[in-house]
């Protein structure tokens, strides 16, 4: 087992945690945290590939930087949506958001 595989395994585990979190948890905050976990797993993948497969360039690092920026923006928007939802529903349980049900 070389180093790259190790990194990929770790990132896969992280990603799985995130995925399970998104699917299982009822709290919106927890879901947001899980999404961040998945994004971090992806960043880790990028970094690992950059380091081991193409050390001369820094494309992977740039992608990671972008992912961090996007994650920050997404967190800001998501939190403001949660706030609005909380004002409406007095709760952040995702099961309570059912007004659009057809």
């Amino acid at each position: 087992m070389n180093n790259l595989t190790l990194y990929l395994l770790i990132s896969a585990v992280l990603f799985s945690f995130g995925l399970v979190g998104v699917m299982m948890r009822r709290s919106l905050i927890a879901i947001l945290v899980s999404i961040e976990l998945m994004l971090n797993a992806a960043s880790l993948n990028f970094m690992a590939f950059n380091k081991f497969l193409s050390p001369d360039t820094s494309i992977g690092q740039i992608y990671t930087l972008f992912i961090m920026g996007i994650a920050a923006a997404e967190a800001a928007i998501a939190l403001s949506i949660f706030l609005a939802l909380f004002r409406q529903l007095r709760s952040i349980n995702i099961e309570r958001a059912r007004e659009l049900r057809g």
């Binding site: 998104v22 699917m23 995702i94 099961e95 659009l100 049900r101 057809g102």
Partner: peptide, 20 residues
């Protein structure tokens, strides 16, 4: 939108599960 809203079943997480 009204027609398409039957897809909205109030079960976000099950939807994600099926998608994954």
């Amino acid at each position: 939108g009204r027609i398409a809203s039957f897809l909205q079943s109030n079960m976000v997480q099950y939807n994600i599960f099926v998608m994954v």
